[in-house]
C-alpha cells in the first residue's frame, strides 16, 4: 500500500533508554530499540505486543511526552526531534493527538466535559476568540461526532458521572477537537467492558474515514488489531520483530514470536487441546538484555548466532519484513 502514498508520520531508528539508579550503580533499561514504523493517512497501523514490550514508550515519544534517546521522528517530511521550539511543538500537537488507555485517569476529575473539549479548541484557535456561541456549537458538534447524544446533556457533566465508554468517547472527542491528521491510540479499548469495545473501535474507524486520520493503534489484543488495522507491527522486548498486512500476519506469521502469540489466542475450533507451540520462559528483563535477539531464550528454533547479534531486517516482496535469521537477508 505504500508504493505511491507518502507516510504522514514515520520513525527511523527510534530508540529510548531509561536510566535508573544513582551515579554509582546506573542501570539502563532499553525500552525501545531501533524502531522503524510508518503511519499513512486514512490507514491504521497496529502495534501489538505484551505489556512491557515498549509499545507505550513508542507512543509517548511520538506524542512528544518522552524525548527519544536517538533516532528520528518525521512528520510531514520534517524531523520534529530537531525542532524543539514551543511554537513548533504546539504546531505538532495541533496535528498529532493521543488517546490514553485509561479513561478513568485521562480526564481530570475536577473539570466538566465542556472544559475538556474547549481547552484544545482555544489553545489551537479553532474557535474565533471571544465567540462563546461558536465555541459552544463546536463542542456540541464534537460530542455528536463521538455519538454522545443528546450532546447538551453531556456538556455539563463531570467525568465521574459518565461510564467508561462515555469517558473514552469524550477523550476521543478531545483528540478530535484540534482536527488532527494522526491519532495515537494507546490501548484505547483495553480498559473498557468487552460489550462496548466494538462500538468504540467502529467509532474510530468512522472518524478515520470521515476525516482521513491516520491511526497508530496500540494493543495487546491480536483479534482487535486484525479487525481494525490495515497493517500490524509485532513488538517484543523493545524490538519490532515483524511487520505485515493484517491478514498476511495472521494467516502466515513469520517470526517465531508472532507464531507463539497467535498460538496463544484461544481458538474455539481447537477446543482445549494444548497449543502446537510449547510456551516456555518469561519476558526478559529489559535492564540486562544480551546482545542478541531477546526472544532467543524462548525460541524453539534458536540458532547459535541468535544469541550474539540481533538479526537485521529481511524485507519481502509484499513490503512486509521480519527480524529473524530463519529468513536470510537477500
Amino acid at each position: 500500500m505504500s508504493e505511491n502514498i507518502q507516510p504522514i508520520l514515520e520513525t527511523r531508528g527510534l530508540t529510548k533508554h531509561f536510566f535508573t539508579g544513582n551515579a554509582l550503580s546506573r542501570t539502563v533499561v532499553k525500552a525501545v530499540q531501533d524502531a522503524t514504523l510508518q503511519v499513512y493517512p486514512e490507514k491504521v497501523v497496529a502495534l501489538v505486543g505484551e505489556s512491557g514490550s515498549g509499545k507505550s514508550t513508542i507512543v509517548r515519544m511520538l506524542a512528544q511526552l518522552y524525548k527519544p534517546t536517538s533516532g528520528d521522528i518525521i512528520f510531514e517530511g520534517e524531523n520534529i526531534v530537531k525542532h524543539t521550539s514551543r511554537a513548533a511543538l504546539l504546531r505538532y500537537r495541533g496535528k498529532v493527538q493521543m488517546i490514553f488507555q485509561d479513561p478513568f485517569a485521562s480526564l481530570n476529575p475536577v473539570h466538566k466535559v465542556s472544559y475538556c473539549l474547549q481547552r484544545p479548541l482555544r489553545i489551537h484557535h479553532k474557535a474565533p476568540p471571544g465567540m462563546a456561541s461558536a465555541l459552544h456549537r463546536q463542542t456540541i458538534e464534537l460530542l455528536e461526532q463521538v455519538s454522545l447524544i443528546p450532546a447538551e446533556d453531556y456538556i455539563k457533566k463531570y467525568p465521574h458521572q459518565l461510564s467508561g465508554g462515555q469517558r473514552q468517547r469524550v477523550a476521543i472527542a478531545r483528540a478530535l477537537a484540534v482536527e488532527p491528521k494522526v491519532i495515537l491510540a494507546d490501548e484505547p479499548v483495553s480498559m473498557l467492558d468487552v460489550s462496548i469495545r466494538l462500538g468504540v473501535l467502529n467509532l474510530m474507524d468512522r472518524l478515520r474515514e470521515m476525516h482521513g486520520i491516520g491511526f497508530l493503534y496500540v494493543t495487546h489484543d491480536l483479534a482487535s488489531a486484525r479487525y481494525f488495522a490495515d497493517e500490524i507491527l509485532v513488538m517484543y522486548a523493545g524490538w519490532i520483530v515483524e511487520k505485515a498486512k493484517s491478514e498476511e500476519l495472521i494467516q502466515n506469521p513469520k517470526h517465531p514470536y508472532t507464531q507463539l502469540l497467535l498460538s496463544a489466542v484461544p481458538d474455539p475450533s481447537r477446543g482445549l487441546r494444548t497449543a502446537e507451540i510449547e510456551i516456555k520462559g518469561e519476558i526478559p528483563n529489559l535492564a540486562n538484555l544480551g546482545a542478541g535477539c531477546p526472544f532467543a531464550p524462548r525460541c524453539s528454533k534458536v540458532m547459535e548466532k541468535c544469541n550474539t547479534v540481533m538479526p537485521p531486517i529481511t524485507t519481502f516482496d509484499d513490503g512486509s519484513w521480519t527480524r529473524c535469521y530463519l529468513f536470510p537477508n537477500n
Binding site: 511526552l65 490514553f100 489553545i123
Partner: peptide, 21 residues
Amino acid sequence: SEFVAAARVAGEPSWRIVLFE
C-alpha cells in the same frame, strides 16, 4: 497522572497545568 499527560498533549503550557490541572 494521565490527565496531566493529556493536558500536555493538548498543548497546555506548564503554568496552566499547575494552576488548572
